[in-house]
């Protein structure tokens, strides 16, 4: 009996050591997304937030590179966060919204509609960028299931070693540096700053389906339901860009959808003049995304819209927010300085 007890303890110890070793290896091989491919770091940074937000931006690169929460707070007193990611598809956005609603209830959710043109999962790499940092829960499980490409399997999300074990011979210093630490945030409450200028030239022609996929519209509808259930105002936007082209038919479809659900829809491309966007100076990649200059102009314009239309509270003067945003502003200035000295 005593011997059996020792055997059981021995086996348990072996299993604990084994699990610990595998966990350590797993942490080592998982991409850290800190110095390179920083878009993968964005989804996890949200959980570091200590204050809640009145406005939550969700969507793809047209939100995380186009809006600055620092400006929104410093100029309007509006607290905000951007839960955006590279090629973040609508089911990812829904998952991030569902996930955020577990811990806070913003007054306004702003969703950028560009990604609605994708009705099917596109790429495993982008799925990983969006989901690796997401905290486990019903929302994450649902998002993984909704967005997996054909070759992916759920188990590899549960045990990342199954996906990344082949990185064992491609490890870099970054992997060792952030083995057991997430490092400093790479974003400013979800905003990723770009300071370069690369003027827009010509718009590449592309073939397109004049109708947005039914599946993505169904997810949008679910998002509207979720916001309605929580008493949140959902605002649909199309952030300014020249390419990818936002076609008139899609615009009309979103407009009709917004009207049918009683939602606000702002196609900001049409407001370029009012906002003051100049695609010769305000883009860092020929009109696809805005640079810091463009993002600040857009945020100022949209901040006024949010403030006027939704009567958001001015939190300036509240100690917790002031401290939080003072630190953010300082980081923002440092980042600007770094970009100016190092180039973008």
């Amino acid at each position: 009996m005593k011997r059996k007890g020792f055997t059981v303890i021995g086996i348990l110890l072996c299993c604990i050591v084994f699990s610990g070793a595998l966990y350590a290896v797993s942490r080592l091989v998982v991409p850290k997304y800190h110095d390179t491919l920083i878009e993968g770091h964005l989804s996890g940074e949200y959980y570091r937030e200590t204050t809640d937000h009145d406005v939550l931006f969700i969507g793809d690169c047209e939100v995380f590179e186009h809006f600055s929460p620092v400006i929104l707070y410093n100029e309007y007193g509006v607290t905000s966060y951007i839960r955006g990611g590279a090629q973040q598809l609508v089911w990812h956005s829904y998952g991030f919204l569902e996930d955020a609603l577990k811990t806070e209830t913003p007054k306004v959710v702003v969703y950028n509609v560009l990604a609605l043109k994708y009705g099917e999962p596109q790429s495993e790499a982008y799925n990983r960028l969006a989901l690796d940092g997401m905290r486990w829960g019903k929302a994450k499980i649902g998002t993984i299931r909704a967005g997996m490409t054909e070759d992916e399997d759920f188990m590899s999300y549960v045990f990342p070693l199954l996906r990344y074990h082949d990185r064992i011979d491609k490890l870099t210093k970054e992997d060792v540096r952030y083995w057991f630490s997430d490092g400093d945030p790479v974003s400013l409450k979800g905003y990723v700053m770009h300071a370069g200028v690369d003027p827009a030239t010509e718009v590449p022609q592309e073939r397109y389906d004049p109708k947005l996929p039914e599946s993505s519209m169904a997810w949008l509808s679910k998002m509207a339901d979720l916001c309605e259930a929580h008493g949140i105002a959902l605002v649909l936007i199309k952030s300014p860009s020249i390419y990818p082209v936002w076609h008139a038919e899609w615009d009309a479809e979103i407009e009709a959808f917004a009207k049918s659900r009683g939602l606000r829809y702002d196609n900001m491309i049409a407001e370029n003049d009012a906002i003051g966007i100049d695609m010769q100076t305000d883009t860092y990649d020929q009109g696809q995304h805005l640079n810091l200059n463009g993002a600040e102009k857009l945020t100022r314009w949209f901040g006024a819209v949010l403030k006027n239309e939704y009567g958001l509270t001015d939190h300036r003067g509240e100690a917790a927010y002031d401290a939080d945003y003072a630190e953010l502003t300082e980081r923002c200035e440092r980042e600007k300085l770094r970009l100016q000295t190092e180039g973008n």
Partner: peptide
């Protein structure tokens, strides 16, 4: 002994998980 056998088994499984060719992309 059982404990030693379990250790060997876990080492085999561990090395397969780390060095095996499987999963996405394979």
């Amino acid at each position: 002994g059982t404990v030693f056998s379990v250790c060997v088994l876990l080492v085999l499984i561990g090395t397969i998980l780390i060095f095996g060719r499987y999963g996405f992309g394979f």
